[in-house]
């Protein structure tokens, strides 16, 4: 029997937490980028500028919500919702602490992969429905990039799944009590993290929205809250990527002394900061380099990693 009140509470906490964190990240990212570029970043509103996201929100809500007359209206309107919905749906299977999870699905990993593959639609269709050159170019890039890196993402996290012997995320975390999977699965971790960056289209894989070349890529034509949804969706996927990395390779909530939730949040924040640091440091790939890097480096490495892991697991099983 499902404990409804517990489920409702968990949903509320995770939903609220994820959305608040995504909102806060708008400020955190700008502030950190500022600090790393030897300036301050937004520091006016509230202590340290932490109310900046609120101001951004108000601005974005009061902006004119313009639908281009040349756009495909219905598709144009539903697209931003897909980003946020798929990202939030993925949080349903993220175990934050023992039994602190909305749905402890048996195939949590697959659910996560399914949601991230559906998230590709928002980018692709959004660019198409905008019916403008830059948006369309952005979505063309997005298709090639997301399709390729989805494959690597799945392949490289299969190593962790093999070691744990389960698709269930809580089981995977529990299997890491002794040693975090990042040690035996370092290649897998690298592949997963890079593929995740590409899935979330963050630097150095942010070609679909490369400001320098494509205006804003697939969301060039979006304004007001629709643009805001894309923005929040991107931060949600950053949080999701960090959370999944922690769960799959860094022992989830395991850690000494502190309560599990604190450990989870700490590890996740470290990865969020790392992602922002990468954005502050690395340049963007060239597109053909991105694809050849994916298919010629990440793909073979992921396959070899999978093969070796599978061999070791079989050998141990005897």
């Amino acid at each position: 029997m499902i404990d409804w009140s517990h489920t409702a509470l968990t949903i509320g906490v995770i939903l609220g937490g994820a959305l608040t964190l995504a909102g806060l990240l708008i400020w955190v990212e700008r502030r950190l980028l500022g600090i790393w570029q030897e300036r301050y970043g937004p520091n006016r509103l509230g202590p340290g500028g932490c109310l900046q996201s609120l101001a951004d929100m108000i601005k974005i809500f009061t902006k004119e919500d313009w639908i281009p007359p040349f756009a495909d209206k219905a598709v144009f309107v539903i697209t931003p919702a897909i980003v946020v919905i798929t990202a939030l749906m993925s949080f349903a299977v993220v175990p934050i602490a023992p039994s602190f999870v909305v749905s402890d699905l048996n195939m949590g990993v697959l659910f996560f992969l399914a949601m991230s593959s559906l998230a590709a639609y928002s980018v692709i269709i959004g660019g198409w429905a905008s019916n403008s050159k830059f948006a369309f170019l952005g979505s063309l890039r997005a298709i090639a990039q997301l399709l390729s890196y989805e494959v690597f993402m799945g392949l490289s996290l299969m190593g962790a799944v093999l070691l744990a012997g389960s698709f269930n995320l809580s089981d995977i975390v529990d299997a890491q009590q002794q040693v975090w999977f990042v040690v035996p699965q370092f290649l897998g971790f690298l592949g997963f993290f890079m593929a995740g960056l590409a899935e979330a289209h963050r630097t150095p894989f942010d070609m679909p929205e490369a400001e320098a070349e494509l205006v804003a890529g697939y969301h060039s034509e979006y304004s007001g809250m629709k643009f805001g949804m894309f923005f929040v969706g991107e931060y949600l996927s950053v949080i999701l990527l960090s959370a999944m990395t922690v769960i799959l390779f860094f022992g989830g909530w395991h850690g000494p002394w502190l309560p599990p939730v604190v450990w989870f949040v700490l590890k996740m924040s470290a990865f969020i900061v790392l992602i922002i640091l990468i954005r502050a440091t690395w340049p963007r790939f060239r597109f053909d380099q991105l694809l050849s890097f994916g298919w010629k480096v990440v793909m073979p490495l992921a396959l070899i990693n999978l093969l070796v892991t599978g061999g070791v697991v079989l050998w141990k099983a005897g």
């Binding site: 500022g34 600090i35 790393w36 030897e38 300036r39 640091l277 502050a280 440091t281 690395w282």
Partner: peptide, 21 residues
């Protein structure tokens, strides 16, 4: 080089911003 770049940027956390308020 990529890791070194990350480290060099990260060290900037502890430098004083040049911004004039």
């Amino acid at each position: 080089n990529l890791t070194l770049g990350l480290w060099i940027v990260f060290k900037r956390t502890f430098t004083k911003p040049v911004t004039v308020q």
